[in-house]
C-alpha cells in the first residue's frame, strides 16, 4: 500500500495544456475521486500515475519511489478503464485469473481459484464464470475488467469511470463493494468519475480539476460546504447550486457579483416573493422550481408539500456564499 504524490506535474498535448502544475498528495489508504467535466485533466492525471503517459515537467511518486522513469509494469498499480479490455477468446474465469498467472508472481493454483471466486462473488458474476468474454453484456464485461484489477493486490488502484456503463442498482452495489475493499485492504484508490453521488459517497478526498489545474482538494463535505469558487461549488449538489445577482436580496459584501444558494441555504416562509413554476416529485426528493423576478431558482421541499404551480412562496438566503466577478469565493 502506498501514498501517491504528484509534484508540479504539467502535460501539454499540442496547444492544449492538459495538466498545469498539479501538486497533490493521495494519502496511503485513501479514496481520492477526481471530479471535473470532460477535458478537465482527470484521465490525464490517472495516466501519469499509471505510467501510460509521462509529464513534460514535474514528478510522480508512489511511496518513496520516483516513478516518472519507470515502466508501467514496475509500478504495481492496477488500472480499470472506462472501456473494458478483455481477452475475447478466454472465459470469464480465465480472464480473471490471467493477472495472477504471471510467472513472476508464482501464485499457487488453489490461491488463484479462491481469489477468482471471491472477486466473482463481489461483482455478482459468479454464475458467468465459464462463459466466453464475448458472450457477456456490456455491464458484465465491465465487471470482469474491474475484477481483473481486484484479483491482484496492487499498491494502488486507478479507475477511470469504471461504473458509468452499469445500471443504477448495480452501480449502487458496487459503490459499497469498492468502498469495502478499500477499507478492508487498506488500498489506495484514485478514481475518476462524472458522477457526484459516487464522489460524495466513496471519496475520503475529492480533487476538483478545472482546465488542467487542481482548484480544490478536500473531503466531500469541505468542498460542498466550503467551496473556493463557483466552479467548485457547481461540481457537487443536486439540484445544482443556484447562482443569482449578489444584491438580489439586499446589500451584498464589497466586490460580490454573485450569490450562491444551495437548497439548504434558502429559507422558505419570509423574504422575497417567488412564484412556483413546477413541483417536481422525484420520490425521495421534491423539487420546487421557483421564479423570482427574472430568475429561476430550484430548491427542495417536503414530499407532502401542498404547494402547486402558481402559488407564491417567500424566500430569503440563509448563510449564503458570495463570489466575486472572477467566480472566486468571498469569505
Amino acid at each position: 500500500m502506498a501514498e501517491i504524490r504528484l509534484e508540479n506535474v504539467s502535460r501539454k498535448f499540442g496547444s492544449t495544456q492538459a495538466l498545469q502544475n498539479v501538486s497533490m498528495t493521495v494519502p496511503d489508504g485513501s479514496f481520492v475521486v477526481l471530479l471535473g467535466p470532460t477535458g478537465a485533466g482527470k484521465t490525464t492525471t490517472l495516466r501519469m500515475v499509471s505510467g501510460l503517459d509521462q509529464p513534460d515537467d514535474g514528478d510522480v511518486f508512489i511511496g518513496r519511489h520516483r516513478l516518472t522513469k519507470l515502466e508501467p509494469a514496475q509500478r504495481n498499480v492496477a488500472m480499470v478503464f472506462q472501456q473494458y479490455s478483455l481477452y475475447p477468446h478466454l472465459t470469464v474465469r480465465e480472464n480473471l485469473a490471467f493477472p495472477l498467472q504471471s510467472p513472476l508472481l508464482k501464485t499457487p493454483k488453489a490461491e488463484i481459484e479462491r481469489r477468482v471466486a471471491d472477486v466473482a462473488e463481489v461483482l455478482q458474476i459468479a454464475h458467468k464464470l465459464d462463459n466466453r468474454a464475448t458472450r457477456l453484456s456490456g455491464g458484465e464485461m465491465q465487471r470482469v475488467s474491474i475484477g481483473r484489477a481486484l484479483v491482484r493486490n496492487p499498491a494502488v488502484f486507478l479507475m477511470d469511470e469504471p461504473l458509468s456503463s452499469l445500471d443504477a442498482k448495480l452501480r449502487a452495489d458496487l459503490r459499497l463493494e469498492l468502498k469495502r475493499i478499500q477499507a478492508n485492504r487498506g488500498a489506495t484508490f484514485l478514481f475518476v468519475t462524472h458522477d457526484q453521488v459516487e464522489a460524495m459517497t466513496m471519496a475520503t478526498h475529492v480533487g476538483v480539476l478545472d482546465h488542467g489545474k487542481l482548484v480544490q482538494f478536500g473531503s466531500p463535505r469541505d468542498i460542498y460546504e466550503n467551496p473556493v469558487s463557483i466552479y467548485a461549488a457547481s461540481r457537487l449538489g443536486q439540484p445544482r447550486i443556484n447562482l443569482l445577482p449578489a444584491d438580489l436580496f439586499g446589500r451584498a459584501p464589497d466586490g460580490a457579483k454573485t450569490i450562491g444558494l444551495r437548497p439548504e441555504q434558502i429559507h422558505q416562509g419570509d423574504g422575497l416573493e417567488s412564484t412556483v413554476k413546477r413541483v417536481e416529485r422525484l420520490g425521495d426528493q421534491t423539487r420546487l422550481h421557483l421564479k423570482l423576478q427574472d430568475h429561476h431558482i430550484i430548491t427542495v421541499t417536503d414530499a407532502h408539500t401542498p404547494l402547486r404551480a402558481g402559488d407564491i412562496v417567500k424566500v430569503k438566503p440563509d448563510r449564503p456564499f458570495y463570489f466575486d466577478a472572477a467566480g472566486a469565493r468571498i469569505p
Binding site: 453521488v197 460524495m200 459517497t201 466531500p220 463535505r221 460542498y224 457537487l236 449538489g237 443536486q238 444551495r262 437548497p263 439548504e264 425521495d284 427542495v300
Partner: peptide, 26 residues
C-alpha cells in the same frame, strides 16, 4: 454514515434487519 450534501444516508442494524435512513446533514 454517507454524506450526500443536503442529506446524509445513515445505515442502521436492527433486530429486524439492516435499514437506511435519510436525514438532513445538519
Amino acid at each position: 454514515v454517507e454524506y450526500l450534501g443536503t442529506t446524509q444516508i445513515v445505515t442502521l442494524t436492527s433486530p429486524h434487519g439492516d435499514l437506511k435512513a435519510r436525514m438532513p446533514s445538519s
